[in-house]
């Protein structure tokens, strides 16, 4: 893994898988009031790098992800993905995404939900690939089930399988396990780590969990409250594939303390 640091020597923007170049985003609220969600955010993510964006709720971290997913437009600065406008990547069906809301279509079976990206892209459905992914997320045998028959954790695994099915260049995860209980969430993190270590897709994860960020990412970026700014960045030293035991090491605890401290500005506790 030669994950580039953002402090690495300046290179052409095309060298980055994701380049969030001094971006600001202002929303106009009802009544004309302006809300600055993020201010001068600069994030560079290398090919095959897993970056976690950590911050309190409402710090604009999801906004950054939505900018990269071409769901919002920047107010200032520029976002490029694989060297071009983010829209180009989604039009080429090379973007994978999993939100906190699993967004599975209730009228489709699990198999058909995972096959949906093929249908949207107008490509023939590759059943072998779907079976492979179902096995990867531990849901073989659930092909014919419907989303409402599955537990919350299982639905999120389906949504991750769906995000991966077209072998995307970039994977965007917005609190994919945010709605799950602590035990299931830890379990899902272990699985996601295993899945990711097999695929190594450039990934941007948005989370407010310090442990989740540390366990999954190569690099953790901490953001401040509104307007969102980058206040800290650390390189995660653990080798891959990571076993859950990593979370019990002293080093993990030290890093977790460091990040937690960064998340809580003085006087606020």
């Amino acid at each position: 893994m030669n994950a580039p640091l953002s402090s690495a020597p300046a290179t052409a923007p095309e060298a980055w898988a994701i380049n969030v170049d001094h971006v600001g985003k202002t929303f106009t609220l009802d009544g004309g009031k302006e809300l600055k969600a993020i201010d001068d955010v600069d994030i560079k993510i290398g090919q095959g790098e897993f970056v976690a964006l950590l911050g309190p709720s409402g710090c604009g971290k999801s906004t950054i992800l939505r900018l990269v997913a071409a769901l919002e437009d920047v107010s200032t600065g520029r976002v490029t993905v694989e060297g071009s406008n983010p829209t180009a990547l989604s039009r080429a069906h090379r973007l994978g995404v999993a939100f906190q809301d699993h967004a599975l279509l209730p009228w489709l079976t699990i198999r058909d939900n995972i096959a949906l990206p093929y249908k949207v892209a107008g490509r023939p459905v590759d059943d072998k690939r779907i079976a492979e992914l179902l096995a990867l997320v531990g849901l073989s045998g659930f092909e014919k089930a419907r989303p409402r028959q599955l537990s919350g954790g299982m639905r999120q695994r389906v949504s991750i399988a769906r995000a991966l099915v077209l072998k995307p260049d970039v994977l965007l995860l917005d609190e994919p396990f945010g709605a799950l209980d602590a035990v299931t969430r830890r379990h899902m993190n272990v699985e996601l780590q295993r899945i990711w270590s097999e695929q190594r897709i450039t990934t941007l994860l948005v989370t407010h969990s310090v442990e989740e960020a540390l366990f999954l990412a190569d690099r953790v970026i901490v953001m401040s409250g509104r307007p969102g700014r980058i206040i800290k960045e650390i390189q995660v030293p653990f080798a891959r594939p990571r076993s859950p035991d990593v979370q019990r090491t002293m080093e993990f605890h030290h890093l977790a303390d460091e990040l937690t401290l960064a998340l809580e500005p003085e006087g606020h506790h």
């Binding site: 997913a69 769901l71 989604s90 039009r91 995404v97 599975l104 279509l105 990206p117 949207v120």
Partner: peptide
């Protein structure tokens, strides 16, 4: 369904695909 509209945008769905696979069902 919640989140599905964003999902179809990210998947790069055309207006027609969106209509057939999401809106109509």
């Amino acid at each position: 369904p919640p989140g599905s509209s964003d999902l179809f945008k990210v998947f790069g769905a055309s207006r027609w695909t969106r209509f057939v696979h999401l809106v109509l069902p």
